[in-house]
Write a protein that binds this DNA or RNA. Structure first.
Lengths: 261, 261
DNA sequence: CAATTTAACTTGTATTAACATGTATTGATA
DNA sequence: TATCAATACATGTTAATACAAGTTAAATTG
């Protein structure tokens, strides 16, 4: 049942993770007892506990002495934030996402783009402008700049049905390891106003995103303008309930505002 | 050395936490080996490992087989986001924070405020308007509304030297358990423009914050406008390096955009 | 002297064993 | 009937032990 070469506790926690993911064990459902699991996998109870501990620290399950282990209700592993994708975000919100590619060209990198993409002067970059729509009406407009190295992997065809993130990850195995988001506000100039169908001078929520792959290599730099009447970014921070006394005064969560001078 | 009644592994992990916090073990410094710690506390190595495991899952330390355990460089436990405080944010950025209370009054709650504060029509609320400054120049302007229950605990005096968060937590033991942040953009009207010393129509980053105490009771609702030339909110999301195979495809971090219709 | 082997030390994995503590049910007792 | 004690079973704590595997440096070898 268990492969060799991979720690058993990892395999067991992985098995449980996928079982929970697949809905075999539903939310709030009681898992088999540690002894039962130990028998099932023919390992010691300690190994089972090691596996359950992983799931507990990921807040996928919670355990009650005397009662058993239960699947957490939270759909996403708490405290974990995923690097999200426009289409994915929209799908989660139950909206029909679509996008139009309005620009797909190679340009000389403007000077302000050199530092974020770690490029030298005179280098060319790929620029992709897209209008993002939810249920057919414009929600956001973004420009993305990529070093030619990565930009050449894209095509108009693919961009229509997929996202840059997915194309690079799934087709070329270039995965984004790190991403930095910057939130700021801007006002719609003539061009943005007409793209997003808002009045010139309207406030727009701007999110700049820098993404990096292994070795801190920049993959792309993106500026996205959201219609404020359409999108608000929201984030809930929760202070962990005083569980076991492990956190006496406790860590909550961090959110770093950067002050420009 | 160890008290009874409290699990030894908890006491040991707590001791290590505070030693690290106090700088006894600095960033990237190697901790004593598991065997050394076991001898020091006269416990088994398993107990030490249990303690280190807690610190590891909190990302306070990391461990390398064959090398030892090391203190993580990250100042704040990773993946944990703290509910922050304006003064604290500024201090961290090395700026001198100050604020002027421009309004401190009791008003009839406007209708749009009723749902977020879970109040009935006709209720009165406390409103506090403050201009926030960094090194003497205006950075943000916020209005905070509190149910009278909590508002009455504040005073002009205290607000000058402290923050609402601190006053309620430290003096009245009312601690904020949960907070929701919403990011959006707005433009400066005449009043905001003159407060923040920007042109009318300038873009401002607006952050709405709802905070709750135990039992999901709203403590206050706040609207803060940041000068975009002064402040950008930034957030870095990192995908955990494939450590042990525990996370095969996955979990990064979550950041929820809310789509208004 | 350089390359290799060995030894010592580190954390990682896993078992067996015992006892502590919390929860719920069952059955005897007042 | 209501209460309490016994019991079974859950997770929690901890020890003692063994071996695996990664790292480093010293010792050995060519």
């Amino acid at each position: 049942m268990l492969k060799k070469g991979i720690p058993r506790h990892s395999q067991i926690s992985q098995w449980l993770r996928s079982q929970i993911e697949d809905g075999v064990f539903e939310a709030e459902e009681k898992l088999p007892s540690e002894n039962d699991l130990a028998k099932k996998f023919d390992v010691s109870r300690v190994t089972i506990r090691r596996a359950l501990q992983s799931l507990e620290s990921e807040e996928i399950i919670y355990r009650c002495q005397g009662l058993g282990s239960f699947v957490s209700d939270k759909r996403t592993p708490h405290n974990l934030v995923r690097l999200t994708d426009f289409n994915e975000d929209m799908a989660k919100a139950g909206l029909n996402a679509s996008s139009e590619v309005h620009e797909f060209k190679i340009i000389d990198a403007p000077s302000w783009l050199l530092p974020p993409l770690q490029l030298d002067e005179g280098t060319k970059v790929m620029q992709v402008d897209r209008l993002r729509m939810a249920d057919g009406s414009p929600v956001a407009f973004d420009s993305t700049w990529l070093p030619i190295l990565y930009g050449q992997l894209l095509s108009l065809e693919k961009l229509k049905s997929s996202t840059i993130y997915k194309i690079l990850e799934e087709e070329y195995d270039i995965s984004v390891i790190r991403g930095t988001y910057r939130f700021t506000a801007d006002i719609a100039d003539k061009s943005l106003a007409s793209e997003l169908k808002v009045d010139e001078g309207s406030p727009l929520l701007m999110i700049e995103r820098s993404t990096y792959t292994i070795g801190n290599k920049p993959v792309y730099f993106q500026r996205r303008y959201y219609r404020t009447d359409k999108v608000t970014y929201e984030m809930t921070l929760e202070r962990p309930q005083e569980d076991n006394g492990d956190y006496p005064e406790l860590p909550m969560k961090e959110f770093i505002p950067v002050f420009n001078r």
